[in-house]
Design a protein around this nucleic acid. Structure first.
Lengths: 347, 347
DNA sequence: ATGAAAGCGCTAACAC
DNA sequence: GTGTTAGCGCTTTCAT
């Protein structure tokens, strides 16, 4: 069908072994020979058959990446980073979507395991135990999930939270609502912990609400609940939720940032596109994808099943991006109070 | 390393050939034997090595999909549809990002060609000639690009435009600005054609502007230009651009939809999340991804290089989603005029 | 209905 | 420095 190593060998008047070497270990063949082989290969447009190579080396040159939901705008940039990094190391990436289903996640790992050298799972939904089981099937790297024994790429959420709280406190906010994400999620626990620590350290008074769905709709709900408490600022679990908060606030006649400040997490593309633009803690998504692939490649390359733990956990820095949804609180909370009353008078 | 067909054969007391048959062509083996083989396979957790199979069958069970930019919110849902459809036919999908570079696109096809059964390219940037050349390397299916001889999945843009124009006309709009996307893009030509036809048919007076970058920034620019012309409505190339228009309009004190109506294209997630929510022509992105994979699998399955042309072009329906950015124009364009003057008085 | 055996294209010992 | 050769795990004739 296609041009094989034999064709190249014949054309270059050498054996197939020499062709193979000239391509893979150039130092082992004489310069003249190598030149001849390379010329022949290029002339014929030879591309090694990866299946054949894989059969013998045991490596596929493929990496798997599993995301919970391709429709969630949080993941594409992770994919972008992962894809780009993999490509640089001439690896291909197999994409799969688990539909936020732990069982599906495991099934995907099981299927993929045979055809990849390793798998990156983004924000896995599976339990620790299941994840550990999957880790036996192939080399695993996690993004946004910490699990002893499995290397992972995390983002410095606590650090981001500290920056956000510092920003709000410096603006003069004292009463803050914090909207939680789903209880099962690692990132919810992480944010909560960060919030508690930062608030305690910096003397911010805050009330927790939730869990809410980490989506626009969750923000709608969250805003309703928070409005009742007459807070001057709302910190949302993520940007999607913050966008929902913004929308509900606008609908209730609460002005942002004059009446209430809003802070999100992630720094999605949309954060810059709404009016006012969202103040948010930027997550290094592309970097995370890239770091995860790096980690994977590193482990795959050097056959070391158990490495020292220090290299197992990458924590990437986050950064507060101040935009238009945060400002000093107005002297008194009257506006918010009346708006909240208005909303709930009928309910 | 792993469990092979030999292990299963030994366990089931049959030859490897029988195992192979029991799994692939169940009718060719006796019921009892098949049962024994299946049991052994399951017991050992046997998973056929796809590389080995691929080597002999010539099929990889992989599909490639190339998008111009993973960071663009238009593509993830196409990926979702493609991935899900491929998965249903037990194919894997190899993802690549061309960075909107025609050369990269071609390079990716060349690299992928060997390890996939076919490739879907979304909104390709390469020229017709180059695309045709790529089509010789592997089975190709295009999304959002029409090219004689290469099967493609398109969206009914003209139909969507007709709906949008009908909506605007019925609202009473007579002066419309239409913001074009990049001139090279197939979808720009398609929209322009649709707009001209719909406007002519329905008697809408419109002015074309652009090309603009099909992003938020392009919308910022576009709004500036359109405002000068004192139109009552703006139709943007896509949602990203429409969001930019919205933002600039808000910044200029032009109220939407009271002063100016805005219509986008795509129906991105964000279209529902801005305030007011965007009226837009929804593109069936997930369906397109799925349709493209279907087409690919169909062609790959039945080795027919040249099929009758009728099956080569799928046009998917689009639908206008009316939300908050469109309304009847105010009696007089005064407001817009003064706002536009304000903006440009200094420039 | 089942088994034996010949490769698919490539790499990795092992010879020379 | 280069060639020969034995498989990698699987499917598929060809016998039986």
């Amino acid at each position: 069908m296609s041009v094989t190593i034999h064709d190249v060998a014949r054309k270059a008047h050498v054996s197939v072994a020499t062709v193979s070497r000239a391509l893979a270990l150039p130092d082992l063949v004489a310069d003249a020979t190598r030149a001849r082989v390379l010329a022949a290969a290029k002339l014929l447009g030879y591309q090694p058959n990866r299946a054949a190579r894989s059969l013998i080396t045991g490596k596929t040159g493929n990496l798997g990446i599993i995301v919970p939901d391709l429709g969630n705008p949080f993941y594409p940039n992770i994919l972008k980073g992962a894809q780009s990094c993999a490509h640089q190391s001439s690896h291909s990436v197999l994409l799969a979507d688990s539909d936020e289903d732990p069982a599906q996640e495991e099934a995907l790992v099981r299927t993929m395991a045979k055809q990849v050298d390793g798998i990156v799972i983004c924000a896995p939904f599976a339990s620790d135990a299941r994840l550990l089981k999957m880790a036996e099937l192939t080399t695993l790297v996690l993004i946004n999930r910490s699990l002893p024994g499995v290397p992972s790429v995390l983002m410095d959420i606590a650090g981001g939270m500290t920056q956000a709280v510092a920003h709000l406190v410096s603006l003069g906010h004292r009463r803050c609502a914090f909207l939680n994400g789903p209880n099962i999620a690692w990132s919810t626990r992480e944010r909560r912990r960060g919030m508690r620590a930062a608030a305690a350290t910096q003397g911010l008074n805050f009330i927790e609400f939730g869990p809410f769905e980490p989506k626009f709709e969750g923000g709608l709900e969250g805003a309703d609940v928070a409005l009742k408490q007459n807070v001057t600022t709302i910190v949302a679990f993520n940007d999607l939720m913050a966008l929902g908060v913004l929308s509900r606030l606008a609908a209730c006649g609460v002005r942002v940032p004059q009446d209430v400040s809003v802070v999100g997490f992630d720094d999605l593309l949309y954060a810059t596109m709404c009016a006012p633009a969202l103040t948010t803690v930027a997550m290094p998504m592309e970097a995370a994808g890239s770091a995860a692939v790096h980690l994977l490649l590193e482990r795959v390359g050097s056959e070391q099943p158990e490495r020292n733990n220090s290299g197992n956990r990458h924590k990437l820095p986050t950064k507060l991006i101040v935009r238009g949804t945060t400002a000093a609180p107005s002297a008194r909370g009257t506006k918010v109070e009346s708006a909240a009353k208005r909303v709930y008078s009928g309910a």
